[in-house]
Computed example of a mutant assay.
Amino acid sequence: MRRLISSGSSFEAQIGYSRAVVDGDWVFVSGTTGFDYADMTISDDVAVQTEQALKNIAAALTEAGASFADVVRVHYLLPDAADFEACWPALGRAFGEVRPAATMMQVGLADPRMKIEIEVTARLGSAA
């Protein structure tokens, strides 16, 4: 059974996507940036953006019935690869014990204010 999860972001309605899709035991969380969707603001600091992106992802995972412990794959997308190390403390707190398969890519993002985008795939019950 497929279930769509929305964060309420205006981007989702404008572009036509879901924050996450649950399909059977799988949870696919879309690329998520450091926007605070409550007020549509974003910090200039990549570490702060990383923390907010992880909060946004955690909310989607929770709604799906999952957590970071269920994450099996993560993609980190950054316009500037040199910024990645500043993200490590937050990423380590979220994924340090989970140790999902991971890839970091240097890419262009949709908005020049965005310094990181994170996409995860989780499998319900994989934490057990």
Rank of each mutant, 00 (worst) to 15 (best):
P89H: 07
S30Y: 12
E85N: 11
P89L: 09
L109T: 13
D80V: 06
H75G: 08
T121Q: 15
E97V: 02
L4R: 10
A94Y: 00
T103C: 05
V22T: 08
R19M: 07
F11P: 01
F68L: 02
S6K: 01
T41C: 07
E117G: 11
R2E: 13
G92A: 14
E12H: 04
I5D: 09
R113F: 08
S18H: 11
L4G: 07
Q106P: 03
A59C: 07
E63R: 01
G34A: 06
I15P: 05
C87T: 09
Q49L: 14
A110I: 09
I116C: 09
D39A: 10
L78Y: 12
A59P: 12
G34T: 15
S43Y: 13
A59R: 10
R73D: 12
W26T: 12
R123T: 06
F35S: 04
A64W: 02
I5Y: 07
K115C: 12
A64M: 00
R99D: 04
G8Q: 13
F84S: 09
E117F: 11
D25S: 00
G125V: 05
G92M: 03
Y17N: 03
I5F: 12
V29E: 08
A64Q: 00
F11K: 13
D45F: 01
F95V: 11
F68E: 10
S126I: 00
V74S: 05
I116L: 14
N56H: 01
V27N: 06
T103G: 14
D83F: 08
L77Y: 07
N56T: 07
F95R: 03
P79E: 04
Q49I: 15
D25A: 03
